[in-house]
Design a protein around this nucleic acid. Structure first.
Lengths: 206, 206
DNA sequence: TTATGGTTCAACCAATTGATTAAACCTTTT
DNA sequence: AAAAGGTTTAATCAATTGGTTGAACCATAA
């Protein structure tokens, strides 16, 4: 009755959000159930009441993190667009989505490197088949001599993904190197959203 | 007396190497002292006898991992070379060094994201001042209108680093996406060492 | 009012983990 | 050979961690 302003949030939701924050920041191994409980302002038993175990809770967080980041992009890749336009919107869309969820890349990469098996399956079943048409489209363009240096599709795709994702993963290094605060980093990303789509097209297509 | 072929290795060294492997693979939080001891084929007490604590042991591993990866590159950046040549050799050298220590990038990035304070200082004191001349050189070139799209130095540098480092960090994704085994991945990197230096120059300098 | 059933909590448990200890072992020195 | 000192080991500790339990709480329905 004190400040129930916007506290319609259920306990289950509070737990999930706290878990998401802690898992994102510390990873599975570094996360503590007690810390999640504290951040959600509830008793630790509640975690197990709603999610059974740390593994199950992590699974939920992980799944939603991936779901939030990937499908929107994947849809784009399956559209029937000319390569040039697809490249441009891929870069722009991807950067924009990650900007809204900037801690997801580090999170995914970290868990993918420390405990591959847990999620390789997800990638194999959800991502690969949706990216394949895009790869094929690039391969075809390469065979037709439309790609700079006749690079194979794998190299082109990695160059794309690298330039999109790495700045978020390397944020702490970046901030030290260029003496950026968080606002500076955001401005840096905005600048990227602005020039990178055209830049990528230019450096990829003849 | 069985197979003491090359076992001149001291216990201290065996511990360090085992620790390096385990820390690289699992990170600080995921690493277990017992696992390190097992991998080194020694009693767990030896870890503490030689390195006092898990933290101290980690510190040693971390420091050497950084030392091994960074100085060689940093030296290059301070040489008095024309930008074009410096770019080329920067990409080639950096890729070659990481190829020899392919698990270091993920390791550094992971710890940098989970526990920034532990190492920010190292970067600030060791890396920044050595990279600065390189940044300045690019900034100057940009002012002189020699950079494609007149990109600011920060964007150029990040594009470089992204394309060099990310493939190693994203190896698990890459392997799923393109159905690569470890040999395939190495071939992929070799291909990169081959074309990326010139490619980067072309996409950076007018 | 009271019975019901979902929710919350404090107390507790078993297992794991980093760390310590004291004795045994081995190599070198005297 | 015996003393000395560094090295190795097994046993053990205290703290932490994920997880469990049973009772209390509280809203809703009979």
């Amino acid at each position: 009755m004190a400040d129930d302003k916007l506290e319609k949030e259920s306990t289950e939701e509070k737990i999930f959000e706290a878990a998401r924050d802690v898992f994102h920041q510390k990873g599975f191994d570094g996360a503590r159930m007690q810390e999640i409980a504290d951040r959600a302002n509830i008793n630790k038993s509640m975690l197990h009441y709603y999610y059974r175990s740390k593994d199950k809770l992590f699974e939920k967080v992980y799944q939603l993190s991936l779901m939030r980041a990937i499908p929107k992009i994947v849809i784009l890749l399956n559209k029937d667009l000319p390569l040039e336009e697809k490249l441009r919107s891929f870069v722009r869309e991807y950067l924009t989505i990650i900007k809204k969820n900037p801690d997801i890349p580090s999170f995914i990469i970290r868990e993918l490197n420390t405990n591959p098996s847990r999620i390789q399956e997800f990638f194999r079943s959800q991502v690969v088949k949706n990216v394949q048409p895009f790869i094929d489209q690039i391969s075809e363009a390469s065979r037709e001599g439309k790609i700079v240096d006749n690079l194979p599709a794998e190299q082109v795709v990695i160059n794309l993904i690298s330039m999109i994702i790495f700045p978020f993963i390397g944020k702490p290094i970046l901030q030290i190197l260029f003496e950026m605060d968080d606002a500076g980093f955001e401005a840096f990303i905005d600048q990227r959203i602005d020039y990178l789509p055209d830049y990528v097209v230019k450096m990829t297509l003849k």
